[in-house]
């Protein structure tokens, strides 16, 4: 939402230097005084709905900003949650903040290479065609599966004894809840977005550009690696950022596969990063849920503060997407 608004603004700016493409800006609105009544009402409804959605977005953002700035204290970002009866005793949410960063990193590190590989295979190879079609619809299916269902499936996988090294196990019983487990399942949530974005990027490269590379004796692999993937770097980045947004925003998988404890629960005896990664924890989304009036903690002020932090993170991600797109326009592209 935010990204598309700012893109439109950016397009407006560049339009000042060069004449805007016909029919995209301005031209459509000009003559509406002479339109039939029905068309004018239709246009008014479109305008109204557009403004309404802007208003909703602004209201949410503004409300959270006001609440967030009121309740957020820097100490909350650095102190872990503690048990206590009043909001002043229960600490902050540093564990949740770090947890969010951890699942985001894990998820995207897993999803990005796989997503790029799938997209390259679908667009550049796609053979046998039947298998490509199956892969395509599978990915669409994953995109449509609610994350709670994925989470449930994850419990089956990660509780198997073969994957005991990914979580805590006690006398042969595998716990199945860990940052590894949550990160792996969250990568599935991000995967369809990355695949779609990279495919779009690859498809937007004209065929003659590939052929130009083949025509100087380059193989398909070399062409993909040196020409096609660098050319769709903006789309790769967009897919990654959109995927990150999904991962950060997910709650169901966190509750089911991360344990949703208040604090980190590292596995004793494992070497440093592994003890935390194999252990349980929490994220900001889960913290907001727990701290909200429906959750177990019921400390709404901290819920607002955490939600505010979450919102800032998402806004930053949107700004990054926007920046990438503006950058990519500077490099230029082929006429088709």
């Amino acid at each position: 939402m935010e990204a598309s608004i700012s893109t439109a603004v950016a397009a407006g700016h560049s339009g000042a230097a060069a004449p805007p493409p016909p029919g995209k800006h301005g031209a459509a609105v000009e003559g509406s005084a002479t339109w039939r009544l029905g068309d004018r009402i239709g246009l008014a409804i479109c305008w109204g709905l557009g403004l309404l959605f802007c208003a909703i977005a602004v209201a949410v953002a503004l409300y959270l900003f006001v609440q967030g700035i009121t309740y957020l204290k820097p100490a909350m970002l650095t102190t872990p949650a503690a048990s206590g009866f009043s909001q002043s005793e229960s600490g902050g949410f540093s564990d949740a903040l770090i947890g969010t960063l951890m699942v985001a990193t894990l998820g995207i590190v897993l999803a990005l290479p796989v997503g790029i590989a799938i997209a390259v295979w679908l667009v550049e190879y796609g053979r046998p065609a039947a298998l490509a079609r199956v892969a395509e619809s599978t990915i669409e299916a994953i995109a449509g599966i609610p994350s709670i269902v994925l989470a449930l499936f994850g419990t089956v996988i990660f509780s198997s004894s073969a994957l005991a090294f990914l979580s805590r196990s006690n006398e042969g019983v595998v716990f199945g809840k860990s940052f590894f487990a949550a990160g792996a399942m969250l990568s599935l949530v991000a995967l369809p977005l990355i695949v779609a974005s990279v495919r779009e990027g690859l498809n937007s490269i004209p065929r003659h550009v590939r052929e130009a590379s083949y025509a100087v004796g380059k193989t398909k692999a070399a062409t993909t690696r040196r020409i096609l993937l660098p050319a769709c770097r903006p789309q790769v980045a967009t897919g990654a950022v959109l995927g990150l947004g999904r991962i950060i925003g997910d709650t169901a998988i966190i509750v089911v596969l991360l344990g949703a404890t208040q604090n980190f629960g590292p596995v004793e005896g494992a070497p440093f990063p592994l003890d935390y990664l194999r252990g349980v924890g929490t994220t900001l989304t889960n913290f907001v849920y727990e701290a909200s009036p429906t959750g177990n903690l019921n400390q709404p002020q901290k819920a607002y503060a955490a939600a505010f932090v979450l919102l800032i993170m998402i806004l930053i991600l949107n700004a990054i997407v926007d920046l990438i797109h503006r950058r990519s326009r500077k490099v230029g592209t082929w006429s088709s």
């Binding site: 550009v209 052929e211 130009a212 083949y214 025509a215 004796g217 020409i227 230029g332 082929w334």
Partner: peptide
């Protein structure tokens, strides 16, 4: 083919420099 295409190279209708 890759060897042949280095000996018989081609220029296309649309200018298509690589994005580098």
């Amino acid at each position: 083919p890759t060897l042949l295409r280095r000996r018989v190279t081609m220029v296309f209708q649309q200018p298509n420099p690589f994005p580098m």
